[in-house]
Design a protein around this nucleic acid. Structure first.
Lengths: 212, 212
DNA sequence: GTCTATAATCAGATAGAC
DNA sequence: GTCTATCTGATTATAGAC
């Protein structure tokens, strides 16, 4: 507001192209490669356009996250609305590109206050919605694990799946098979055998490796 | 070797000072802030010295990791050599600075092949040693969790503690209390109540905030 | 909405003196 | 072992023309 510079509209095609390009660079080369020049280059546009649509690079990072976060909330909501929400949660996000994107964002968040707050808000929203669903689902289940609080179950499920995913993208998988078996035996006790594969409705990075 | 440039000895005081400085920058400002000039500045030395001790910035990152990795293996070994190795493992590394350091390294590893291989090697070493210890410890235990494979137990324990730690440094702790209670009730069944606090023998980042 | 031009900094890396 | 000097190129960001 105190800055007199003009700023582009949110729905401009170039703005979207720049965000897409920034995401690709982030996943493939890391946040260090997300510079105004490289982003513009990747989008086939001039570097100055980056500063027309985003006041600073920080603003670009924030917008990049917000766009995906909004999608992520919708995806989880759709996914949890099924007969076996625990299985759905467990099978959610096994995409290595999401792992890389998340890792980069978390690293960025370590030293960017606004982004950190945004990620915290988003994580809380996901967790609370998941918890509400699982609470209802678990009251029906009776097993040796029956007394596990839904909140803890969600933390454990999402932690394990995230770390396993990260380790696999490192090329390291010791203990993963045993872990899958353990988690899946617990899920089977709580929800029965999985009756379908609960993949997310829309792949989050649909264009990667596709149209260039 | 094909490079004719001289290179400093590994035990030079300045080399250590540069690695220390690089670590501090990495934790406080992220890997993007680890540039030759900033590292030298933080160490109170001239930028050119960075290139005297490390051929490239990549080599500096690798050395930074290797130094801490060697320490980490020693620490875990000391920690596991106790009557309650599962409790020790669970209480290990709750330092937020380690979380930040690890996050940055993982992000870097996404697009640096050599570092990625090094981290994978290190993670495998930690996990295999932990597994060997836990296997012995678990044969003594009998409980409703008695049939949990040690390999899976380690993956779950370390995953949960890492993610919880990362989330807390984001300022986000939904479900953490319930998770602690769950994990600790399982550990109590397997190893009994914790009879001491198993802190690591040496704090990994001893100089931070202390001597500047 | 997109461009040219440009300011001001900062980056990694190397040669050679002391 | 540390320094000065320097090359070469990239970076964020702004002003103003079209």
């Amino acid at each position: 507001m105190s800055d007199g510079r003009r700023i582009g509209t949110r729905d401009a095609a170039s703005r979207t192209a720049l965000l897409d390009a920034a995401e690709r660079l982030m996943v493939e080369k890391g946040y260090g490669a997300v510079t105004s020049r490289k982003v513009a280059d990747e989008a086939g546009l001039k570097p100055q356009l980056v500063h027309y649509y985003f006041r600073t690079m920080d603003e670009l990072f924030l917008e990049m996250f917000r766009r995906r976060a909004a999608e992520g909330v919708e995806q989880q909501r759709a996914l949890l609305n099924c007969p076996q929400p625990l299985w759905a949660l467990w099978q959610f996000s096994t995409d290595p590109q999401i792992a890389a994107f998340t890792t980069e964002l978390l690293a960025l968040a370590n030293h960017r206050k606004e982004l950190r707050a945004e990620i915290a808000k988003y994580s809380a929203e996901l967790r609370i919605e998941a918890q509400r669903t699982i609470e209802k689902a678990l009251t029906r289940a009776e097993s040796r694990f029956g007394e596990i609080p839904p909140a803890a179950l969600i933390v454990v499920l999402t932690s394990v799946s995230r770390v396993v995913m990260m380790e696999e993208s490192l090329g390291f998988s010791d203990g993963h098979r045993e872990t899958y078996e353990l988690v899946e035996s617990v899920l089977t006790e709580l929800e029965g055998s999985p009756r379908q594969y609960y993949s997310p409705p829309v792949p989050p990075f649909p264009t990667f490796g596709g149209d260039d």
